[in-house]
C-alpha cells in the first residue's frame, strides 16, 4: 500500500478533503482539497477557499489520509455485478403501464 499524501513527510501541513453542502436539502459534495495544520484551521481555510461566492451552507473536512477507497483493480468484481439485474428497476415492469398510480 502506498503512503497517503496527508502523512507525507515532505509537507509541513497535511492535506484535507473538503465537502460542501450547497443548500439545505442537498448532500455534502466533494469540493476539492487544501492544506491546513489541524481540523480547526482546515474548516476555516475551506470556508475561505470554497465558499466565497456563496457556494455553501455547511462544510465537512476530512484528513485525506483517513479516507479509504475501493481498489480500482477490483472494479470488475465490485461494480459489475448489478449488470443484468434489471428487475431492480421500475422500468423493468412494463405490464402495469397505463394502470393509474403504479
Amino acid at each position: 500500500m502506498t503512503t497517503p499524501g496527508a502523512a507525507d513527510a515532505r509537507e509541513i501541513w497535511p492535506l484535507w478533503e473538503v465537502f460542501v453542502r450547497a443548500n439545505r436539502g442537498l448532500s455534502h459534495v466533494h469540493a476539492g482539497s487544501l492544506h491546513a495544520p489541524d481540523a480547526t484551521m482546515a474548516i476555516q481555510n475551506a470556508r475561505d477557499l470554497y465558499t466565497r461566492r456563496g457556494e455553501g451552507v455547511s462544510i465537512w473536512v476530512v484528513p485525506a489520509e483517513s479516507i479509504t477507497t475501493s481498489d480500482p483493480d477490483a472494479r470488475g468484481a465490485w461494480f459489475e455485478s448489478p449488470a443484468g439485474k434489471n428487475y431492480r428497476h421500475a422500468v423493468y415492469y412494463t405490464k402495469s403501464e397505463g394502470v393509474p398510480h403504479l
Binding site: A22, H30, A31
Partner: peptide
C-alpha cells in the same frame, strides 16, 4: 443525462 452539478454552481 445532463444534470447541473449541485455543488459550487456559479451562474
Amino acid at each position: 443525462m445532463t444534470r447541473a452539478d449541485p455543488h459550487g454552481e456559479v451562474i
